[in-house]
Design a binder for these strands. Structure first.
Length: 429
RNA sequence: GUGGGCGUAGCUCAGCUGGUAGAGCCCCGGAUUGUGAUUCCGGCCGUCGUGGGUUCGAAUCCCAUCGCUCACCCCA
């Protein structure tokens, strides 16, 4: 049924507007990230928001929750099945292969933008959400694992985020993981009577996730299950220990969590998550891992790779929880224009000032109104100064300059002198 | 997909056992005949989420439905 006629106009469920009052926090996050990535030698890549459905099925895994029930999939007018990207890695890997960027080359890239998953929205979980994503291709050793984690740690620190816990684990090679998975299925199948409904379902698709269960009645069976660490081969162990040594050396604290498995099939070796307990139930703020098999699996030349993604909405909310809201950007000058003669020349004067002061933020009052209401607006804008143009000033070709943040007498300036005086006062701090 | 809580003005909310909708904030104007505090006065603002039922009468009771939200699940 069409409910649009009886419901107020709303965005699609789980998709949010970022309002002018919130945008400062987004810009701060994105600009800090962009500057930091450049200092580590990572370059931006931009890829489509839509890809062929098969790309996500083959990379994320047919049996994962994301592919089975969370994708926005549709047919284009030509009959192709396309999907709104539920995560960034698949598209970036595809772009690497499509453009031949991995041919005897290493790549360090980052990407930011919206992702889409058809989930039931709740705190920290939306149908359209935004990630900042970092990937490195062609590096096999644990040094790049360490670099990527150091990069994430520095970014989180620079954003002012506190009290995060870094969880780490190694899944080993695809082969060792496969052997372990079979052992788990054997174990849990032998204890089927003790499994709850969720775990029985996972037994078919993703038995590793049974280890994650929060059901208290499950803890006993889980405690007796085989441990992944015991199935790691020697090279996997060495890789993981190498990573830990690098992290120890720079003093990054971590917790090795053998239960950390991640929900995407392509991960191998290192996986990690930065966790908070200050956002309700969606505690993962940044997470990622190595995916050495994915490039080859998608048809590229076999290339080791690793990456992580952080959730912008979650990070912004966490910053707000810990430090309060980001103040909005204020103009430098609020230009009060009152009276018919003033209105006739006000915009022209403002344009002249902008010619001479290209970096100064001048907000002109449009739409008339009393001096009182315009001054009130000037105050609320957060501007340091008000320029005051009434009919009497317009007649004499002068403009009033009033300091709004400190006690100081209002002065009158000839139009020709206004820009120079403003420049002087604004640089005085 | 499952469960809990909640839908009244742009925002935050009041409205008891049914009697026909209110406050504060915001915004505009005035007191202050051209200047951002406070105070005071006035003004603006409502399909009481939607549909149906009970009733002389429903924001209030009943049913359905939609939406929001939190948790499970999943994950950034």
């Amino acid at each position: 049924m069409d409910t649009s006629s009886i419901q107020p106009l709303q965005p699609p469920r789980g998709m949010n507007d970022v309002l002018p009052s919130q945008v400062a926090a987004w810009q701060r996050l994105e600009s800090i990230a962009r500057e930091l990535f450049a200092t580590y030698g990572y370059r931006e890549i931009r890829v489509p928001i839509v890809e062929h459905t098969a790309l996500f099925k083959r990379s994320i895994g047919e049996l994962t929750d994301i592919v089975q029930k969370e994708m926005f999939t549709f047919q284009d007018p030509g009959g192709d099945s396309l999907t709104l990207r539920p995560e960034a890695t698949a598209g970036i890997v595809r772009a690497m292969i499509s453009n031949g960027l991995l041919h005897n080359q290493k790549q360090r890239v980052w990407c930011a933008g919206p992702m889409f998953r058809y989930e039931k929205p709740q705190r920290g979980r939306f149908r359209q959400f935004h990630q900042i994503d970092v990937e490195a291709f062609g590096y096999a050793g644990p040094d790049i694992d360490a670099e990527l984690i150091m990069l994430s740690a520095r970014l989180l620190k620079r954003l002012g985020i506190e009290r995060l816990e870094l969880n780490l684990n190694s899944l080993g090679t695809l082969e060792s993981r496969k052997v372990y998975r079979e052992a788990l299925v054997r174990y849990f199948s032998a204890h089927k009577s003790k499994l709850d409904a969720d775990s029985l379902r996972r037994l078919e698709g993703n038995p590793l996730r049974i280890l994650d269960s929060k059901n208290p009645e499950m803890q006993e069976v889980i405690a007796g299950a085989p441990v992944l660490t015991e199935y790691l081969d020697e090279p996997s162990r060495q890789h993981f220990n190498g990573l830990l040594r690098h992290l120890d050396a720079v003093g990054i604290k971590y917790v090795v969590n053998p239960r950390l498995v991640r929900g995407l099939d392509y991960y191998t070796h290192t996986v990690f998550e930065w966790l908070t307990n200050e956002l309700g139930s969606q505690g993962a703020v940044c997470s990622g891992g190595r995916y050495d098999g994915l490039v080859a699996q998608l048809g590229g030349k076999s290339t080791p790779a690793i990456g992580w993604a952080l959730g912008e909405e979650r990070l912004i909310e966490l910053i707000e929880v810990q430090h309060g809201a980001q103040p909005q950007e204020a103009p430098d000058v609020y230009f009060v224009i009152s009276g018919t003669q003033a209105e006739a020349v006000g915009l022209t004067l403002a344009e002249r000032l902008r010619d001479e002061l290209p970096a100064v933020r001048i907000e002109t009052h449009c739409g008339g109104g009393s001096f009182k209401s315009q001054m009130k607006r000037a105050d609320q804008s957060g501007a340091r100064f008000a320029l005051v143009l009434g009919d009497s000033e317009a007649e004499r070709q002068v403009v009033g300059l009033k300091s709004l943040r400190i006690e100081a007498p209002q002065v009158e300036l000839a139009w020709a002198d206004a820009a120079a005086e403003l420049r002087k006062r604004l640089t005085e701090g």
